[in-house]
Simulated scan of single mutants.
Amino acid sequence: MSDLNTRLEKIKVVPVIAIKDAAKAATLAQVLIENGLPCAEVTFRTEQAPQAIKAMRQAYPELLIGAGTILTCSQVDQAIEAGANFIVSPGLNPTIVKYCQQKGIDIVPGVNNPSLVEQAMEMGLKTLKFFPAELSGGLGMLKAMSAVYPVKFMPTGGVSPQNVKDYLAVPSVLVCGGTWMVPSKLIDEDRWGELAELVADVANIIN
């Protein structure tokens, strides 16, 4: 996990992507890399997610790829086979956590209250997704939990250009997840120039 944390901390913002057509994945990866965000969390909210991860991995081996919205052990297997570097889940499912640990792949599960943080720590986890961040109390809740628990957080859900720097300024925040720079509509319509501008804007904000 320390290697993953080091890479995430350098990237600062992970684009959270729902991609419907895996044929577009390599081009999207190119846009991310060339405009300063060499990472992607490809969510399993679409059927094409495993194929998209595989296409990104083959085209850009250096890209850091997470498989997001993982809800089953079968999806963990698909993500590993496709070439994902790490797993992200919206909640804390002990079965999924233990399965990832058995498979030797890092997992960043979702939590939004102290009890879930403690359960995650009990399972040996020290990097957690704070989700849905804004709806769960935002910066106030995050700072309160950070004062108590020696863990790192990846706030996701409601993170935006307006508040991303505030989240990143919290010492316990390793990286933020966001969707605003990779809207599905632009991907679906091959509007790569506009996507590139959005990604570059994020890179400029955080660097």
Rank of each mutant, 00 (worst) to 15 (best):
M1L: 12
S2R: 15
L4D: 05
L4M: 07
R7D: 03
K10S: 13
K10R: 15
I11C: 06
V13W: 01
V16C: 14
A18D: 12
I19E: 06
I19Y: 08
K20Y: 11
D21F: 07
A23I: 00
A25F: 09
A29R: 03
Q30A: 14
V31F: 04
V31N: 06
V31M: 09
G36A: 11
P38N: 07
C39K: 01
A40E: 06
A40R: 00
V42E: 03
F44D: 00
R45N: 12
Q48N: 12
Q48I: 00
A49D: 01
Q51Y: 12
A52M: 06
A55N: 14
M56R: 03
Y60G: 00
L64T: 14
I65M: 13
G66H: 03
G68S: 07
T69V: 02
L71H: 01
L71C: 08
T72V: 11
V76C: 05
D77N: 14
A79R: 11
A79E: 01
I80L: 10
E81N: 14
E81I: 10
A84I: 09
I87E: 00
I87H: 00
I87C: 03
I87M: 03
I87Y: 01
L92C: 06
L92W: 02
T95K: 13
I96A: 02
V97Y: 04
V97D: 01
K98N: 15
Q101V: 07
K103D: 07
I105Y: 06
I105S: 06
I107M: 01
V108C: 09
G110Y: 03
V111P: 01
L116W: 09
Q119M: 14
A120H: 08
E122T: 15
M123T: 10
M123Q: 15
L125K: 11
P132R: 11
P132I: 11
S136N: 14
G137M: 11
L139M: 15
M141E: 07
L142F: 08
K143R: 15
M145G: 06
M145H: 08
Y149S: 05
Y149E: 05
P150M: 08
F153W: 08
P155E: 05
T156C: 11
G158F: 07
G158A: 13
Q162G: 02
Q162C: 02
N163S: 09
D166V: 02
D166G: 03
Y167H: 06
A169C: 04
A169S: 15
V170P: 04
P171I: 09
V173Y: 09
L174P: 05
L174N: 07
P183K: 07
S184A: 15
D188T: 05
R191L: 10
W192G: 02
G193H: 14
L198K: 15
A200G: 09
D201L: 08
V202M: 08
V202I: 07
A203F: 06
I205Y: 10
I206G: 12
